[in-house]
């Protein structure tokens, strides 16, 4: 699972109102190289929840991102920053571990890089 996906997942249990962001319990993290496309990074930047991204990246052992969200102007000129953002969003993969709902504490296991988001019948 990539961080770009984690930045969009929220807890879907009935009654949960602030199920985002899910906390990451990282068991095994790997890196896979992906072609760098600055246009895509700029396109997705507008939709990224920055604080959740930084926390997620820290949980997966990557601490190169700044704490505060940079300005949109930085995206046009700062190529090293775009590279770091690209690496965090698309190249880090959580292979084994769990995602924890911040409100209920429910754990969604991650196996072989696939989060199991299936809910039990009483949670729907």
């Amino acid at each position: 699972m990539r961080l770009i996906t984690h930045n969009m997942l929220s807890c879907n249990i009935k009654g949960v109102t602030s199920g985002f962001p899910l906390r990451i319990e990282a068991g095994n993290v790997i890196e896979k190289e992906v072609d760098f496309n600055p246009d895509f990074i700029r396109h997705m930047f507008a939709k990224i929840e920055w604080k959740a991204l930084v926390e997620g990246a820290r949980s997966m052992g990557y601490a190169e991102l700044p704490e505060e969200s940079p300005d949109a102007a930085v995206l046009k000129s700062d190529e090293p920053f775009l590279k770091k953002l690209h690496h965090a969003l698309l190249e880090l993969h959580l292979e084994e571990g769990a995602l924890v709902c911040p409100e209920t504490g429910r754990k969604f296991p991650v196996n072989k890089g696939i989060p199991n988001m299936l809910l039990h019948e009483d949670e729907v």
């Binding site: 879907n12 696939i114 989060p115």
Partner: peptide, 13 residues
């Protein structure tokens, strides 16, 4: 990839 049931809602922001 995500393992999930679309009938339970997608669970995306």
């Amino acid at each position: 990839l995500l393992l999930g049931d679309m009938g339970q809602g997608l669970g995306l922001r």
